[in-house]
Design a protein around this nucleic acid. Structure first.
Length: 583
RNA sequence: GUGCCCGUAGCUCAGCUGGAUAGAGCACAAGCCUUCUAAGCUUGGGGUCGCAGGUUCGAAUCCUGCCGGGCACGCCA
């Protein structure tokens, strides 16, 4: 798996090690901080290393002195055309055009695998996302986290991690009883009763109507005579099953699938919660105590009360956290600790939870719990997805949860399409709020980044089709590996450089858990391609297909084929289709 | 009151886990279509990176304190 940044960094390190043998002052210097990166300014060359500046202090040498030694050594590499020392001590490397052309053929040779990385080393990672309450269809608020989690999973898989995509079903709390009661009402309705207005506190959505009808066809009117304690479990299980089916359909509409659906109810029944708390208890991390009231804003019904607490403060949280409600049942937190403990025992030392913005206050206690339960050997990274603001004609779409009048995920996907939803949800960093404008995301123009990127891919496909007309044997000739020497234009080489950065982009995005970088990269690459295309408008010599010049054409086709491949690769991570044609 | 996140061009936001003269899109101004799909491209103006200190060769990036905005704040999930 190629990654030229790694290759050349190794080159620099090797040169430094050789120098260490010859130059006593460099001996024993830590090389960890030596980096190799692409300078912002193109005139500074292809790569720059900070080695001289970083080592200067340790070695007690002037940066310039180290830089001169190092650049002399690097000069001997035939791939490097020019080495120069600049600024405060940067060593700038310019690679030969030949090397870049060779890089292009390697990119093509790697094909779809290009950009994949082994950096994850097969490490098992568990990513929990969506985990919407199974009380109804998904609404837009869930969309961002769903897309984020799914794309992060794609990304980390591409980077060599062994990923489990997990959904935590909150099927044990009070809201599923409410769900059951709401479904029971629909059941009575199905039996012909007049139920009137759905009472306050129950779920009014008509998605429960089919559940009521199914209960009727399965149970006739037998449930009607039962006491609530008897029918509730039956209705609840049935409704839960229906809601999860609904949610899976919604997820499928977005191209999202999970490997594992983990039931909170099962956690309760298995005794895992007690076991986890025993485990913590044995370490003295659980005690009975009374919490201080929250400062500033005391709840009306506050009264000091002894409760079962977890010593979250020992792991960086602000206060110790309650595990039991006053009625003796578990808080949400207790099973969640057990759940993460269980994930760890399943072999996932790396865990990622994708939460909505309103769960920000939950992060510290959860990471504290993971630290406690894994003895510091497991790590939890919580990614918070900020709110999505829906806009229609520039005006915010108002949603009211109470009336059940919220915009569902399905409505959005049906209106603008899966690709647009997915791309737009990722075209912003997860912790920044996001505006989603219906008009904009369906617009077919460069203002719409989804279309902009897809269009670049489609345009390339179009050129390749046209090329077959002009040179019927183009594919065959190219399959053997086109002669790339006609690629001499600076813009063409710049595109190769950008593609050369792709594997590094994947690695960085995966390690940082930041899938939005892939969307931005795809947009950048598309942009460079469109620019190159347009030069052919002004000067026909610079078109990809030059009818009299087969050699030039084949070389350029190789270039755009590589661009197509990398765009497709990025879109695949994003879960967006790479279109062949957009007419 | 406390914690977390955010503050970068008129607007919406990137900024490669500390690098050189801080970028893109929108908007504004001026250009490019007998086309490989103009669904695109080129050029231009526009900035005390919220403020003040600190860390170091070097800070939009890291630390501290303020200012401003969002979210959360014993038993909901």
């Amino acid at each position: 798996m190629m990654n030229i940044f790694n290759d050349f960094r190794q080159e620099v390190l090797a040169a430094l090690e050789a120098l260490q043998a010859a130059e006593p002052r460099l001996k024993g210097c830590e090389l960890q901080a030596v980096t190799l990166e692409a300078p912002r300014e193109a005139s500074h060359g292809d790569f720059a290393t900070n080695a001289a500046m970083v080592l200067s202090k340790q070695a007690g040498m002037k940066p310039r002195e180290i830089a001169d030694l190092l650049s002399a050594a690097l000069q001997r590499d035939s791939r490097i055309e020019k080495v120069e020392v600049a600024g405060p001590g940067f060593i700038n490397l310019k690679l030969t055009a030949d090397y870049w052309r060779k890089t292009l053929s390697e990119i093509l040779a790697e094909g779809e695998r290009y950009g994949a990385s082994g950096i994850g080393a097969g490490v098992r990672v568990n990513i929990e996302y969506v985990s919407a309450n199974p009380t109804g269809p998904m609404h837009v608020g869930h969309t961002r986290g769903a897309v984020f989690g799914d794309t992060l999973a794609n990304l980390m898989q591409r980077a060599g991690y062994s990923v489990c995509r997990e959904y935590y079903i909150n099927d044990a709390g009070g809201q599923v009883d409410v769900l059951a009661q709401s479904a029971y009402l629909r059941y009575r309705e199905a039996l012909g009763e007049q139920i009137g207005e759905i009472p306050e506190g129950l779920y009014p959505g008509d998605y429960l109507v089919p559940v009521g009808q199914q209960l009727k066809s399965e149970h006739g009117d037998t449930l009607r005579g039962m006491a609530e304690a008897a029918w509730l479990p039956i209705v609840r299980d049935s409704a839960l099953k229906a809601m999860m089916a609904l949610i899976r359909e919604d997820l499928a509409a977005l191209g999202i699938r999970h490997d594992e659906f983990y039931s909170e109810r099962v956690l309760h029944q298995s005794g895992a919660i007690e076991k986890t708390l025993d485990f913590l208890e044995a370490q003295g991390l659980i005690y009975i105590g009374v919490l201080e009231p929250p400062k500033g804003k005391t709840p009306d019904d506050w009264e000091p009360r002894p409760q079962t607490l977890f010593r979250a403060t020992q792991f960086g949280d602000d206060v110790d956290r309650a595990l039991k409600k006053s009625d003796g049942s578990w808080t949400y937190f207790a099973p969640d600790i057990a759940y993460h403990f269980e994930k760890f025992q399943r072999g996932y030392a790396q865990m990622i939870d994708v939460f909505g913005a309103d769960h920000g206050g939950y992060v510290k206690r959860m990471t504290a719990a993971v630290a406690a339960v894994t003895g510091g050997r497991g790590a939890l990274d919580v990614k918070i997805c900020q709110l999505v603001r829906l806009l229609r004609n520039g005006e915010q779409v108002k949603m009211s949860k109470r009336s059940g009048n919220f915009v569902t995920l399905r409505e959005v996907v049906d209106e603008v399409g899966r690709d647009a939803v997915r791309f737009m949800m990722l075209y912003r960093k997860n912790d920044a709020p996001l505006d989603f404008d219906f008009a904009k995301v369906t617009e077919q123009s460069k203002d719409n980044p989804v279309f902009y990127v897809q269009y670049a891919h489609a345009r390339i496909c179009s050129v390749l089709r046209n090329a077959r007309e002009v040179f019927p044997d183009a594919d065959a000739a190219e399959a053997g590996g086109a002669d790339l020497s006609p690629l001499t234009d600076e813009a063409e080489l710049a595109l190769i450089r950008l593609m050369a950065a792709w594997p590094r982009m994947v690695e960085a995005a995966a390690q940082m858990h930041e899938p939005h970088r892939i969307a931005f990269y795809a947009h950048d690459l598309a942009s460079e391609f469109h620019a190159l295309w347009n030069r052919g408008n002004e000067n026909p010599e610079l078109r990809f297909i030059v009818s009299g010049r087969k050699d030039v054409t084949l070389a350029r086709l190789a270039l755009i084929r590589a661009i197509k491949q990398v765009i497709a690769s990025a879109l695949e991570i994003l879960g967006v289709e790479a279109l062949q044609e957009m007419r």
